[in-house]
Computed example of a mutant assay.
Amino acid sequence: MRQEFERCLKAAESGDADEQLNLGYMYDTGKGVRQDRIQAVKWYHKAAEQGNVEAQYNLGVMYATGEGVNKDDKQAEEWYRKSAEQGFVDAQYNLAEMYANGDKQDQIQAMKWYRKSAEQGDAKALNNLGVMYAHGKGVKQDLNQAVACFRKSARQGDADAQVNLGDAYYTGEGVNHDPKQAAEWYLKAAEQGDAKSQFNLGVMYLNGEGVNQDLKQAEEWFRKAAEQGNAKAQVSIGTMYAFGDSVNQDLREAVHWFRKAAEQGDVDAQFNLGEMYYNGEGVKKDLKQAEEWYCKAAKQGDAIAQVSLGTMYLHGKGVKQDLIKAEEWYRKAAEQEDAEAQISLGTMYYKGMGVKQDRNQAVEWYRKAARQGHKRAIQNLKDLGESP
């Protein structure tokens, strides 16, 4: 290996661009010589200045990552462009990524370079081209074209494209609605370890969509996704433990998974964890903890959490009684058409609790709940001599 390095060094010093590239690669990877990224940049630079397309690309990577040189996106873009204009597919893709996601975004340029890379068959570029068509970024929205791109990429084994193609079949966007095809593409991605598709496949097995209903299979796919940190899957596996669906009921395990998802900000998990603390299920009853988790979910707009929080403030359970806060939380949920919140808000107006007593407002909120079929609201209106 040392002899190969010496040979390569001699040729590189004599100006051979290919050997300069090779020498840069040896320094970059520590192959045949001690790894030295600064030396790697030096030799990539020499080869790149002679027009070596791969060296130009590698130099772009070094500037983009700040390895062996100060990070410099402008320099990275310049070297990617030189390489991309010579048709180097990886450079075309990276240049497109910079335009799509960088500080100075230009979706039209991103589209241009994704297309060039895709035309050479690059699977990731094909998928991203599909995303651009799907969302109308840098091009007129065209769901049929999006699906065509996803399909070409998916057939090459790109997991992201397989998920996107599965989503298209599931929603019927750009292709006929076909849950069976959706499940097949999700499975391909799931088997590659894609957490989103693992969760989606779990949902399909849970509901019997595109596959025969199989709670055991649902649990297995939810678990795979949950163990990778997918919050929705963590909620799903937690729910299965809470109710004993396909697994032995285990409320402590339910709390474990709800907590993992809740700490990621998942609103359903936050509410569920609040419920577990409120009822003392799988964890020691703790109304303060319940209030904290309800509050997190409520602030994200979860109507049921808002009602639960309102009720805690109304009765002073786990918090100091505060009728004004109770009314505020009930109102937030009531404005989302939550019937329980509407009747509670109506009652607060009827009794003048936390608000000025107002029979008309009470009737109005009772009617909103009654129109959703809430029996107590209907009865309250009858008691007041009012029609639903």
Rank of each mutant, 00 (worst) to 15 (best):
Gly280Asn: 05
Gln342Glu: 12
Gly136Lys: 10
Gly136Arg: 08
Ala254His: 02
Phe258Ile: 07
Gly265Ser: 10
Tyr133His: 13
Thr311Leu: 15
Met204Pro: 04
Gly136Trp: 04
Tyr277Cys: 06
Gln217Glu: 09
Val247Met: 04
Lys375His: 11
Phe5Arg: 08
Phe199Thr: 03
Gln198Lys: 10
Ile237Thr: 05
Tyr169His: 12
Lys180His: 03
Lys368Phe: 11
Ala91Val: 12
Tyr27Asn: 02
Gln86Gly: 11
Ala84Gly: 13
Asn52Thr: 04
Asn94Lys: 15
Tyr170Asn: 12
Gln3Arg: 14
Gly121Ala: 11
Leu287Gly: 03
Asn127Asp: 12
Ala377Gln: 09
Ala76Gln: 02
Leu287Asn: 03
Lys112Tyr: 14
Ser14Trp: 00
Gln379Asn: 14
Ala182Asn: 03
Lys180Cys: 03
Val211Ser: 02
Leu314Val: 09
Asp358Leu: 12
Gly346Pro: 08
Trp185Ser: 02
Arg331Phe: 13
Gln372Lys: 15
Arg367Cys: 14
Gln20Cys: 07
Asn230Tyr: 14
Ala47Asp: 00
Tyr114Cys: 15
Ala254Met: 07
Trp113Met: 15
Asp103Lys: 15
Glu78Tyr: 15
Ile378His: 09
Leu323Tyr: 02
Arg81Leu: 15
Phe243Lys: 12
Ala159Gly: 07
Asn200Asp: 09
Phe222Lys: 02
Asp245Phe: 02
Tyr278Ile: 04
Lys42Met: 06
Val307Met: 05
Ala84Val: 14
Arg155Val: 14
Arg37Ala: 12
Glu49Asp: 05
Ala290Lys: 01
Asn279Val: 09
Gly87Gln: 06
Ser117Lys: 10
Asp302His: 14
Asp167Gln: 07
Asn230Asp: 15
Trp293Thr: 01
Ile343Ala: 09
Trp79Glu: 05
Asp322Gln: 07
Cys8Ile: 08
